[in-house]
């Protein structure tokens, strides 16, 4: 068995039996202003959100409303202008490996092989383990995303979908408490995207980690999430509505296509985006 699955599964199981931590990721009255040449720009206003441990949350909204900003705040890459963010009861002060990020553009280092890209993360998080153990982790993570055959390849020698999978492997190899994904499949074709969504769903089911994913794709949001956070348009964007998705797992995309509840949820999101908060095309 590969170590990732073993270790990641254990805490999730024990949490199911024990009391699940609510407010694991907690966003409190957060506002975000950017200082630009033309003056300050208020991107986010009054954001309040609580995420339970093990939950999969999607953030959906029109382009430029501030989805990435929310994710970067949770990652610690940005500091809020007002309000506070907490993770596991602690204030988020800086980025850290317990909150791994899958970047929108994969952000692999082009001079390192896929394996080395993943190993860089493993080495940092599991530095106390032996080299053999660390290597096993890196290989296991790549195996998990089905890339055992491409470990020695450089990022520019593999396809876009494969790069994205390496990015996911890198994040998973860190065994993060919270996985942050910024439009992880945005740049991929529909077929590849569907395959990776299924893979991600399977992995998240097994690991039981908390996840926050930014997306543009309504189907993706409904398929993967426990909760969909719908954002209003910026400037001064906020959370418009939060939709609970209580479809049972495992979710199969073909069966869901005819599921009444699935289609209801889907149209709820569509109504929010295209009726109540339609974006005027300039």
């Amino acid at each position: 068995m590969n170590p990732i699955l073993n270790e990641a599964t254990t805490p999730a199981l024990s949490n199911n039996t024990a009391k699940v931590t609510e407010r694991y990721v907690h966003i409190e009255d957060v506002g975000m202003q950017f200082v630009t040449k033309k003056g300050t720009f208020e991107a986010l206003k009054n954001i309040n959100l609580s995420i339970t441990q093990g939950e999969f949350v999607s953030i959906i909204g029109h382009s430029g409303c501030g989805k990435s900003t929310v994710l970067n705040l949770i990652a610690g890459l940005l500091q809020p202008t007002t309000g506070n963010l907490f993770c596991a009861g602690r204030e988020i002060a800086a980025p850290g490996p317990e909150r791994a990020v899958v970047f929108q553009n994969h952000s692999l280092l082009p001079w390192l092989s896929c394996y080395e890209n993943v190993y860089l993360a493993v080495e940092r998080v599991f530095g106390s383990e032996t080299k053999v153990q660390q290597e096993a982790r890196a290989y296991a993570a790549l195996e998990l995303v089905g890339l055992s055959h491409a470990v020695e390849k450089r990022p520019n020698e593999i396809s876009g979908g494969m790069k994205q999978r390496v990015g996911i492997a890198r994040a998973l190899a860190m065994e993060p408490k919270v996985l942050l994904l910024d439009e992880p499949f945005g740049a991929l074709d529909a077929l590849t995207r569907a395959g990776l969504q299924d893979e991600l769903m399977r992995i998240m089911q097994k690991s039981g980690a908390t996840a926050v994913m930014v997306t543009h794709d309504v189907d993706e949001a409904v398929l993967l999430s426990d909760k969909i956070v719908m954002m209003t348009n910026g400037p001064s964007a906020g959370i418009g509505e939060i939709l609970e998705v209580d479809l049972p797992y495992p979710r199969k995309r073909l069966e869901l296509a005819e599921n009444v509840q699935y289609n209801h949820l889907r149209s709820e999101v569509l109504k929010f985006l295209y009726e109540r908060h339609a974006k005027k095309v300039a």
Partner: peptide
């Protein structure tokens, strides 16, 4: 900035940032 964000999220040491990111770039 993307690479530096990776470095931040991984919490890489200054030495690792130089040898694995800055220097090759």
């Amino acid at each position: 900035q993307d690479y530096m964000n990776v470095a931040k999220v991984l919490n890489l040491s200054e030495w690792k940032i130089i040898t694995k990111i800055s220097f090759p770039y």
